[in-house]
Write a protein that binds this DNA or RNA. Structure first.
Lengths: 226, 226
DNA sequence: GAGTCGTTTCGGTAACGACCGAAACATCGC
DNA sequence: GCGATGTTTCGGTCGTTACCGAAACGACTC
């Protein structure tokens, strides 16, 4: 014993129902206020406040003061990645939250994973880029190929700007509903932002699912063919 | 709420100190008896037994009766992957278990991650394969390229046999100490088994770290150059 | 200034669950 | 058969912690 990172502490924080609900809500990628998160978790503001300060201190979430509100967001995509991995494991072991409502199907089709696209459409995007040779492996993980760098530029994403940033451009994230990879990292975020700008997807306020618009239906398939 | 997998349940199981210690011990990839795990976690056999049945029921570990012993192992590499991801997150947030002993350096150099090689040497292996074009992305994740399939065969690994198995051949696993990818999946397992057979590495009994033998020192670098 | 809204701190309660010892159960060796 | 060893079940204790209401705090509006 006494070697390495303390998995227990992090898992303990995630492993409380109220805190789990809060983190799930933040997986939408939006910053939410303490009150909203309290309602989401089904606890009083007082209780939620305690949870939020614990998780902030642990570095899982990132508090931001703004007027008389305090907004909270996931600290970074490392946290989002860990949560998605746990969700994937839970799904494969059959640990589903009871009462899978009708919204479940919509989530499987397309949803936000922190700041990028997930679900069937997220996997389609990744598969399309990979299948056409836009992505390649480098010593880190996944990276844009020369071909990909040129093609992605045509979609209106400033690749050079992403690469000048310290955040990894490409990361893979295991999709819990599809059990395949989808694209995270700054490129994943930018591509998602772009398809929303283009009006292909519509983000439902306060929810995690996103819907493909009629225009997007054709355009997305054309831009990201499998 | 009420959508998707129940992250909370899994995290709650991992988030107990005794259970965390048990899972950490099982990350060595060996199957251990209930008594050994109790000692590892610093609890009585009675307490450990309770933990073990909980985790078995949840599908995290896999009990195997053998005589009057019961051996436990991690259920599959999905579990190992999730644990490693959590460890990586914990490390990045500075949640280290206190008292980082001298064994820590050895673990960073090379260790077992469930059934494959991790640490600096594990990352070296992955980088070497990737850098020489032995690995490529397919629509799933990472896969052997045509070139890689031929070259790996020369190392004494029966690739065809691996591919006939249902277990994924290639998977990436984020290394908590190096913060880079290393190779998991059946190929990762086979390659590790092979380098141990060849006498390049020595597995320390009952521990997670592995040491490079004098012969292995040269041979491993020659076989997996960066 | 007073009033309102959002958030946090404090004190106290209640419940969950980790833990142990003792006893029961199972398997092995003799 | 018997004892020894490994494991599980059962009661009961204790510590941790999630939770709430009330009150304090801070910021905005009028």
């Amino acid at each position: 014993m006494a070697e390495g990172p303390d998995v227990t502490r992090i898992a303990q924080l995630i492993g409380d129902p109220a805190r789990g609900a809060i983190l799930s809500a933040l997986m939408s990628g939006r910053a939410l206020t303490a009150g909203e998160l309290a309602r989401e978790a089904g606890v009083t503001p007082a209780t939620a406040s305690g949870h939020l300060s614990l998780m902030s201190e642990a570095g899982l979430i990132w508090p931001r003061k703004q007027g008389r509100h305090r907004y909270f967001a996931l600290a970074d995509d490392d946290v989002a990645h860990a949560l998605e991995t746990l969700a994937s494991l839970a799904a494969s072991k059959g640990h589903l939250r009871t009462r899978p409502g009708p919204r479940d199907d919509k989530l499987r089709e397309a949803r936000v994973c922190y700041d990028h696209l997930a679900g069937r459409r997220g996997v389609q995007l990744f598969d399309s880029l990979a299948g056409r040779g836009f992505l390649t492996i480098n010593r880190e993980n996944v990276a844009l190929s020369q071909l990909g760098r040129a093609e992605i530029g045509k979609l209106g994403v400033d690749v050079a700007a992403l690469e000048s940033n310290s955040r990894p451009v490409c990361r893979v994230c295991l999709d819990w509903s599809e059990r395949k990879s989808h694209l995270a990292g700054s490129l994943g975020a930018s591509l998602f932002q772009r398809v929303v700008e283009l009006g292909w997807f519509h983000r439902n306020v306060g929810a995690r699912d996103v819907t493909l618009t009629p225009i997007g239906e054709r355009a997305f398939d054309a831009a990201f063919p499998v």
